[in-house]
């Protein structure tokens, strides 16, 4: 399954762009995607934290992804 992932803030610099496309072969859960992202972009592990969002909502590790989902890497927020 091909997934397009948006990146913001420091994550944009880590992945080298506003979005990245990944191929996920196993059961496409948030946990599997997170593992794959960390292998491909080890600098993600150096962040204070980060979360993944699916269709504009914070996602849980067991959530299953679909090809059309809007996925985003959410590094620690710092608005206000």
């Amino acid at each position: 399954m091909t997934l397009r992932i948006l990146a913001f803030g420091v994550a944009k610099e880590i992945v080298g762009g506003r979005s990245v496309t990944l191929e996920l072969n196993e059961t496409p859960t948030i946990a599997a995607l997170s593992d794959m992202l960390q292998i491909r972009y080890p600098q993600l592990k150096a962040l204070a934290s980060y979360r993944l969002a699916v269709n504009n909502e914070f996602a849980s590790a067991t959530d299953v992804l679909h090809e059309k989902d809007e996925i985003a890497i959410i590094p620690p927020v710092s608005g206000g």
Partner: peptide, 28 residues
Amino acid sequence: AIDTLKQSVPIWKKEVFEDGEVWVAAHP
């Protein structure tokens, strides 16, 4: 409202100094 905004709203701030820049709160 302001406390929760700072915790949960996906907005990011980069501080730009004379000799560099840093994404606020990104790293421990």
